[in-house]
């Protein structure tokens, strides 16, 4: 109904950092980036006039904002960032790459032998203090379990907080567990497994035919029978 050419230019928001290389590979697979697709001069905006795609390179936590506000039609970003932002965007594909775990850890010294996480949380004096880069994820996770907390939002080096008495536990990404170990922290529980996702602006989804047909194609190509993951 609205598939005319001026609609077909697509803007993609890409996350700087650990997902970047895989994100480009996915765009190439999707036909949204050329073979040379990449970022030679690290400019903030890049255009591919042949493919009709504009790329924005932004901080991972900003990808969701760009897409939800319509400054970008599509975005590639981790599930952790999507949950924290909690903004209206379509989360359409699990891209499978960038896998890591979101977990809760506490200092080894504060744990009693054989104590389960629930008991540990409930036996802290006062509110459980949770240091995290994901304060709203933490609030929702513990509220669902009926545990009152005070989240302590930090931008980095979250592992430090319990060591200096700023927090009882941390809620953070754990990839290998080495960082935890070297800081004498123990993983209490895994909250969830995180992978990169493709997100879409809600209006772009409705008015840009190019986007819906791209998604359908990728989804059907990579489909495992009965499942929804990409091959």
């Amino acid at each position: 109904m609205t598939d005319d050419s001026e609609n077909q230019r697509v803007t993609v928001a890409l996350p700087k950092g650990r997902l970047e290389t895989d994100a480009w590979a996915f765009l190439r697979e999707m036909g949204l980036a050329g073979e040379s697709g990449g970022w030679p001069d690290r400019s903030l905006v890049e255009e591919d006039d042949v493919l009709g795609v504009r790329y924005l390179l932004v901080r991972p936590s900003d990808v969701v904002t760009y897409v939800s506000e319509g400054a970008a039609d599509l975005g590639l970003v981790g599930k952790d960032v999507i949950m924290e932002a909690n903004l209206p965007v379509y989360e359409v594909l699990d891209l499978g790459f960038g896998e890591c775990r979101l977990g809760i850890a506490a200092p080894r010294a504060s744990l009693a032998e054989g104590q389960d996480p629930e008991e540990f949380y409930r036996t802290r004096a006062g509110l459980l203090r949770v240091a995290t880069k994901y304060p709203s994820v933490a609030d929702r996770y513990f509220a669902d379990r009926g545990i009152p907390i005070r989240s302590i939002p930090l931008k980095g080096s979250v592992e430090l907080a319990p060591l200096v008495g700023l927090a009882d536990v941390i809620l953070d990404l754990v990839s290998s567990g080495k960082t935890l170990e070297s800081n004498d922290l123990v993983l209490l529980e895994e909250v969830m497994t995180i992978t990169a996702r493709l997100i879409v602006n809600p209006v772009s989804m409705k008015v840009k035919g190019r986007i819906t047909s791209l998604i359908s194609r990728v989804r059907n190509n990579g489909r495992i029978e009965g499942g929804a993951n990409l091959a």
Partner: peptide, 12 residues
């Protein structure tokens, strides 16, 4: 919530 990955998980 527009979480289509979760929708596909349920339908999967």
């Amino acid at each position: 919530r527009r979480d289509i990955v979760a929708v596909e998980g349920i339908l999967g």
